[in-house]
Design a binder for these strands. Structure first.
Lengths: 192, 192
DNA sequence: GGATGTGAATAGGTTCACAGCG
DNA sequence: CGCTGTGAACCTATTCACATCC
């Protein structure tokens, strides 16, 4: 989202930028509850404000990360650069060599401090970047400590209580998906 | 997928492992074209074989990665460890200090060699881990060179020809999604 | 005229439910 | 009996189309 001197914007303009249909945009904006005017479209800053009200917690959320490997560190770096409503405020690892330091602006703790830190910082969202065989156990510890949303990078499907929202980001699966559909498009292209 | 001494398996067993419904499993297996027998279920190794035939290119695919930052390196490390059908065989970056070396088992090249390497290695899938403002340009270079599938980690929506399959992995968006639904579940939990 | 908001139609994907078979 | 394969019902999400307003 950018403020490039634009005051008002029409649904079809938003549509091409997001790569979706104008009807889609209008219906989604119905959901957030902001109405534009037919002659001027949507007033940009007010629209943004409405969307933010709809999406975000009034009080910024704290996030934890478990697993300070290559991927974990990359993600910490990614989020440390751009301050946003969601802040990764604590990282955990089993390796004693990796804990009690500051990694990309984020304090790291040993696993046994996880429940205490989660409670103290009121963390309800966590990122899992541990090896596959440790993921389910970590997830259970996090949920036990009060976390209600998980972003899982480990290549296993986590089994959690229904009240926990789990988003699975599997690099292998995604890449295979791309390879699969790319191959398919290539085949279609040939016969068309 | 694991070989833990299991010969045959029923759809509902697959279902709980994958966290989906048994009907879903059966319908998906229809698509790959493998039929189980009612009394024994699916014969594990044959099923795997059929799925692989359906999913994968007979000849292993080569993959390129553009953007050797923190995230790029983490992904290289991730794929170097586990040899699979998809191999990341080339990495690219604009930074002269990062090119012409071997990063996590993957050779790195300067950007201007991209078209040549893509052609020589017959690469049709690429991973984009460059900053947001460079992503669209990189995508165009890749497509121009013959790539037909993109896995994009940059926080921008890429605009590409229809014959190119683009998968967008946006860490920020995913994390916000988790935070949003976690909050929602929490609210539902309270009133229920 | 051109854009919005929205009911109605449509498409896509999931679940139901049952015939058939071992 | 219990499981598979699959037509049919169902539900969600997208798109169409049009009344409405500036």
């Amino acid at each position: 989202v950018k403020t490039e001197g634009i005051r008002s914007i029409y649904s079809h303009q938003i549509a091409v930028r997001a790569g979706v249909s104008p009807a889609q945009v209008r219906r989604d904006l119905m959901a957030v509850g902001y109405s534009g005017s037919p002659n001027r479209g949507y007033e940009a800053s007010e629209l943004l404000h409405s969307i933010e009200d709809f999406l975000y917690d009034p009080v910024g959320q704290n996030v934890a990360l478990v697993g300070i490997g290559n991927l974990g560190r990359a993600i910490l770096a990614f989020f440390s650069s751009r301050r946003r409503r969601l802040n990764v405020v604590a990282a955990f690892d089993t390796d004693p060599a990796k804990v009690n330091q500051v990694v990309h602006g984020c304090r790291s703790y040993p696993m046994h401090e996880l429940p205490r830190v989660i409670h103290e910082q009121d963390i309800r969202v966590a990122i899992i970047t541990v090896p596959a065989d440790a993921a389910q156990g970590v997830a259970e510890q996090l949920v036990e400590a009060g976390v209600r949303g998980l972003l899982n990078f480990a290549p296993v499907t986590l089994r959690c209580a229904a009240q926990v929202y789990v988003e699975h980001m599997d690099l292998s699966v995604s890449l295979e998906k791309v390879a699969f559909f790319a191959r398919r498009r290539l085949a279609e292209g040939r016969k068309a």
